[in-house]
């Protein structure tokens, strides 16, 4: 293909190889190292002792690992419903004929803004919102007449994961909203017009026209959401640092803490390997489930 303009192999190598090598060092090498390190116990790199599968055995009996995984899965679930659900509803509302396109576009722009902020900023803005004494949330609750609902949001271990997930949902609704709206513009307008003529309500339109037609886009959203939340790290670090106790710890943060705060590098790397395995399983699973739905169509 395109043999006439294809440069010599040496030229191609010059173009492609250097950055490829760098890429290998940055992404592939750490993975190999993580697997290698996971068979050792060590506090400093030059004093490693080989322990075989010891760390992997520990993995399966570690309650904190399990609770971190649970937190990750909880985040995935809540964010999937929250982010994509809210985005889908809003997309349908903003796409409606009844709303002025300029206003709708303005709303979209505003709702998208948090996406451009860093996780650390989101984390800190929300610690200010959640603050017990001077937080926005508690102030609003008081001024709207719900003084009983006031509480120290980031302190309650039972609800901490929900509290922590709200900023993450809040940040990414705009992201999914824009994707879904883009997909909706590709739907033939006549389909909607016909439905309206038939007297279909907005709800009916969303469920029986929009949803099946943008299924593929939605599955992309789901995949993005799953992988983003399995990687959750910065938000949690900024808001609670995994606390109180280990109640809001997630896998990536747990691996980081084991390695650096507890200085148990071997086991930390084992947790890293576990994260990658879980990640591949979940993404493959999600893809499998979605392809199942597709084939049913």
């Amino acid at each position: 293909m395109n043999e006439r303009i294809k440069p010599k192999n040496s030229v191609m190598a010059l173009y492609l190889v250097p950055i490829y090598l760098v890429y290998l060092c940055v992404f592939i090498l750490p993975v190999i190292l993580a697997i290698y390190f996971s068979f050792f116990n060590f506090r400093t790199v030059s004093s490693k002792t080989f322990v075989g599968l010891f760390n992997y055995k520990k993995l399966f009996t570690d309650p904190l690992l399990l609770s971190s995984l649970k937190n990750n899965l909880y985040l995935v679930l809540v964010c999937m419903i929250g982010q994509i659900g809210i985005a889908f509803v809003f997309a349908n509302m903003l796409y409606s004929r009844l709303i002025n396109p300029k206003v709708s576009n303005f709303f979209r722009t505003v709702i998208y803004f948090p996406v451009t902020l860093s996780a650390v900023i989101i984390g800190y803005v929300w610690t200010m919102i959640y603050d017990y004494h001077f937080g926005l949330l508690n102030q609003l609750l008081i001024s709207f007449g719900f003084p009983d609902a006031v509480k120290a949001w980031l302190t309650d271990e039972r609800s901490i994961m929900t509290v922590v997930s709200i900023p993450m949902i809040w940040q990414y609704v705009g992201f999914h909203l824009v994707i879904i709206m883009a997909a909706m513009t590709s739907i033939d307008k006549e389909v909607y017009e016909m439905a309206e003529i038939d007297g279909a309500s907005g709800f009916r339109k969303a469920v029986s026209i929009t949803f099946p037609l943008i299924k593929n886009t939605l599955s992309v959203c789901v995949l993005l959401c799953v992988s983003a939340n399995m990687k959750a790290f910065d938000h949690i670090l900024a808001m609670t640092n995994g606390g109180p106790g280990y109640s809001s710890s997630v896998l990536a943060l747990y691996a980081y803490k084991i390695s650096f705060a507890e200085n148990n590098l071997g086991y930390g790397n084992t947790v890293s390997v576990a994260i990658m395995v879980v990640m591949v399983i979940i993404i493959a699973g999600a893809k499998g489930i979605m392809s199942l739905f597709k084939s049913k169509e």
Partner: peptide
């Protein structure tokens, strides 16, 4: 394929070996 790998490797998971590197 190698460039694709990036999508499956969460950098947060491999912070430790990356740091040592």
């Amino acid at each position: 394929a190698t460039y694709m790998c990036n999508l499956f490797i969460p950098i947060h998971a491999v912070l430790v070996p990356t740091y040592i590197l």
